[in-house]
C-alpha cells in the first residue's frame, strides 16, 4: 500500500462518510472507492461487483476476482442530553468505539470544557437544537437529566424520527411518570415502549461508571441489531 493511500484513509475516516479500500492482491496495488467517483483502469472492469459489496458493506475477496474490498463504515451518531457525571464516563467508554457524540445541555455550568475535552457540546435547549441538526433512524439518543423540561422534548423528537436507540435515565417511578407525559403528548404505547427505561443492561452497579458501562453495553447491542 502506498503511503498516500494510507493518508487518504485517515483523512476519509475523520470525514465520517462511507468509503472502501480496494486491493489487487496479485500486485499489491490499492485504491480508494467512493460511490460515484471513477475508478482507475485496474479496477473499473469490476465496478458493478465492487458497488455491490460496498452497498452490502461486505468485506472480502470479490467473487471470481483477485480484488480485496474493505469497507469503512460511517460512524453512528449518538446524542447525549445532560452533561452530567455519567456522561463523562460515557464519553470515556465510547471513545474506543466508532460513534460520533454530541452533548446537549442548556445548563452552562455543566458543560465546561474542563469537564468535556474534545467533545461537541451544544449549550442550548434540546427543542431548539433539534430544529437545527440533522438526525435519522440511525441516530441514538441517551437522555440523562431526568428533568422533563430538558429530556422530554428530546425524547419526543427521537420517537417521531424513529431513532434506533432511545435510552432514558431514571428510576422505575421516574420512567412511569415520563411514559404518562408522553402518552398525554399523543404517543401510543407501542412507541413509548421503544424507549429503554430505566436505561442500560442489568449489571447491578449503582456508581456513575457502572451505569455508564451498562448504557454503552446496551447501545452496542442495539447497534448490532441495525
Amino acid at each position: 500500500m502506498k503511503i498516500e493511500i494510507l493518508k487518504e484513509i485517515i483523512k476519509k475516516n475523520s470525514s465520517k462518510e462511507q468509503f472502501a479500500v480496494l486491493t489487487n492482491i496479485t500486485n499489491g496495488n490499492s485504491e480508494i472507492f467512493e460511490l460515484g467517483k471513477p475508478l482507475s483502469k485496474e479496477f473499473e472492469n469490476y465496478k458493478k461487483e465492487i458497488e455491490n459489496y460496498y452497498n452490502l458493506k461486505k468485506n472480502g475477496i470479490i467473487k471470481e476476482t483477485q480484488i480485496f474490498i474493505h469497507n469503512h463504515i460511517k460512524p453512528i451518531e449518538v446524542i447525549i442530553v445532560g452533561a452530567v457525571h455519567i456522561a463523562q464516563y460515557l464519553i470515556d467508554f465510547i471513545k474506543n468505539l466508532n460513534f460520533v457524540i454530541t452533548i446537549i445541555d442548556p445548563r452552562k455550568y455543566f458543560t465546561s470544557e474542563q469537564r468535556f475535552k474534545n467533545v461537541k457540546i451544544i449549550n442550548e435547549w434540546p427543542k431548539e437544537v433539534f430544529k437545527k441538526i440533522e438526525t435519522s433512524s440511525s441516530t441514538a439518543l441517551i437522555v440523562l437529566t431526568h428533568d422533563p423540561k430538558i429530556d422530554d422534548p428530546a425524547l419526543q423528537h427521537a420517537l417521531k424520527n424513529n431513532f434506533f436507540y432511545i435510552g432514558a435515565l431514571g428510576s422505575k417511578k421516574t420512567h412511569t411518570d415520563r411514559c404518562q407525559r408522553l402518552k398525554e403528548a399523543g404517543f401510543n404505547e407501542e412507541e413509548i415502549a421503544t424507549i429503554h427505561g430505566p436505561i442500560g443492561i442489568k449489571l447491578g452497579g449503582k456508581s456513575a461508571p457502572e451505569i455508564a458501562l451498562s448504557i454503552v453495553a446496551q447501545l452496542v447491542s442495539e447497534t448490532h441489531k441495525l
Binding site: 469497507n71 463504515i73 468505539l97 447497534t223 448490532h224 441495525l226
Partner: peptide, 8 residues
C-alpha cells in the same frame, strides 16, 4: 448493519 469498531 455491519459495524467496524476498530479503525485507529
Amino acid at each position: 448493519m455491519k459495524k467496524s469498531f476498530d479503525e485507529t
